[in-house]
Design a protein around this nucleic acid. Structure first.
Lengths: 127, 127
DNA sequence: GTCACATTTGAAGAACTCTGCAAATACAGT
DNA sequence: ACTGTATTTGCAGAGTTCTTCAAATGTGAC
């Protein structure tokens, strides 16, 4: 049993305040976002979002990195439960583990876009 | 003018496919998410989301870390344009840089929650 | 079994991140 | 000017991450 809350009413939706409690919610969020904190993995995930399902070699091309490096990163994503794996002969297919991840990816993209259009620079131009 | 696209029609919304192009979109997303990839920063951001505005010392308590460590992390967030700073006497107040970041944070929280309720474990229980 | 292909693994090094400490700076009050 | 409080900075060490290389594994065809 994966306990992870700490006195959380279990069937309740998590609220922002829950992140500040004693649970592990903050770490869960950090781990999730950590998965999206390398451009290689970001490319891999967006490629999967677009294509639905891709072989390792195809992901490798999409991220422009060696098959080995790609496999390492896909493992990271898999360990975090963000992608799922399916074998077919010698090929291995990967896909996003669930639809909501797509929503999150698009939200992140929207934020970046928003920042691009609204602020010009880095946002750190005060002294 | 902050160029960052690479032949992007500028006033267009970014689409998932844009991440796979030659631009820097993938890195932008990765950098953004990297900001949310430490539990200290996640706590800080959620504390700011809840409170609206907090002094460094208050953030420090919320994240349960030394003022120094907190200041270091707030600087990271500021450099990325995620929080803004306002001085009032000796106190310094921080706040989320824009409302959409709150949306993104809640989306991340929702995803974690979703994963908690749907999958039990880590999602990596295949051999 | 051997060959070819796709993928994964382990080890290793460079690069980076996070935190704490001590010292520095900023400001307000006396 | 001096004291106290709030915050920031630079440094350094422990720890982590990312990529590459070489070797291993899995699978199908002959």
């Amino acid at each position: 049993m994966p306990h992870f809350k700490e006195g959380l009413p279990d069937a309740r939706l998590l609220e922002p305040r829950d992140v500040l409690g004693d649970g592990e919610v903050d770490e869960r969020v950090a781990d999730l976002m950590g998965a999206l904190s390398s451009s290689t993995r970001v490319r891999a995930l967006f490629a999967l979002l677009e294509a639905g399902e891709l072989q390792t070699g195809e992901v490798s091309k999409a991220v422009r990195m060696s098959p080995s490096a790609t496999s390492h990163q896909l493992r990271v994503l898999r360990d975090l439960g963000l992608v799922v794996r399916r074998r077919e002969g010698q090929r291995v297919f990967y896909a996003l583990a669930d639809a909501h991840l797509g929503v999150l990816l698009k939200e992140a993209l929207y934020h970046v876009d928003h920042a691009r259009l609204v602020r010009g620079g880095t946002g750190a131009e005060e002294t």
